[in-house]
């Protein structure tokens, strides 16, 4: 903890600096897209949160595997501390996606494969957090949540695949032209800066939350000691 404590102000400063740079680049420097106009600027907050929502779940699944196999308690704490950040990022990705969808597709919500699996990912995050909250003993809660995270990580690709399958069979031609390959330099740079900023943001908040969780557990064990007299 001492080491991460020394890092923290730096991490927070880097987050702030990257965010400022990314916002400046994205909102002021980057030109409007010739097709999407100014709405393309939503991308600079949409893509990083969408990326983080998946990256964080991957981290949680990895940490859960470490927690289950090597029983390393920090892995447990890292997974727990990640979940609210991941859920928040998924909510942000969904909300910004909807706000992008309305001007682009003419509707806030389409049952597009990506949106739908994002929504399901959000539910999985909520379930994970609810499971942690429902079991009092942190050790048991941690193991149960780790099992759930692993089950979720096995299922997520299947869910995504099935939703894509479903989508191609059900959806008319109304859906988005994927921006993936057509994004050009001036749009790409602010996006990558923002992705970097969001990633550092995640680690900063993660360390805060892990720190808090460790303290909370120490409080818990001290109180248990007191109760035992």
């Amino acid at each position: 903890m001492r080491v991460s404590g020394a890092f923290l102000p730096w991490l927070a400063a880097i987050t702030a600096a990257l965010l400022a740079w990314g916002l400046y680049d994205g909102l002021l420097v980057a030109p409007p897209d010739y097709q999407q106009g100014e709405t393309v600027r939503i991308m600079y907050v949409h893509v990083p949160s969408a990326y983080l929502s998946m990256m964080i779940f991957g981290t949680m699944a990895f940490a859960s595997a470490v927690a289950l196999i090597w029983r390393h308690p920090v892995a447990d704490i890292a997974a727990k501390a990640s979940a609210p950040i991941g859920a928040g990022m998924t909510a942000a990705a969904l909300a910004t996606g909807m706000l992008w969808g309305q001007p682009m597709w003419g509707t806030f919500w389409v049952w597009d494969a990506r949106l739908t699996s994002m929504l399901l990912l959000f539910f999985i995050y909520l379930g994970y957090m609810a499971l942690w909250a429902a079991i009092d003993d942190p050790e048991r809660a941690g193991k149960a949540a780790a099992i759930l995270a692993l089950v979720g990580s096995v299922n997520l690709p299947i869910i995504h695949f099935s939703v894509e399958w479903w989508n191609t069979l059900h959806q008319g031609p109304s859906v988005l032209v994927s921006g993936g390959s057509t994004i050009e330099g001036p749009f790409l740079r602010p996006m990558f800066i923002m992705i970097g900023a969001y990633t550092v943001f995640y680690f900063t908040v993660l360390i805060w939350r892990m720190h808090q969780e460790i303290i909370a557990r120490r409080i818990r064990s001290l109180r248990l000691l007191q109760a035992q007299g």
């Binding site: 539910f123 909520l126 379930g127 759930l148 089950v151 979720g152 299922n155 869910i159 099935s162 939703v163």
Partner: peptide
């Protein structure tokens, strides 16, 4: 809440 998302496929 835990089970329904996993039922989707």
């Amino acid at each position: 809440l835990l089970v329904l998302p996993l039922y989707v496929p």
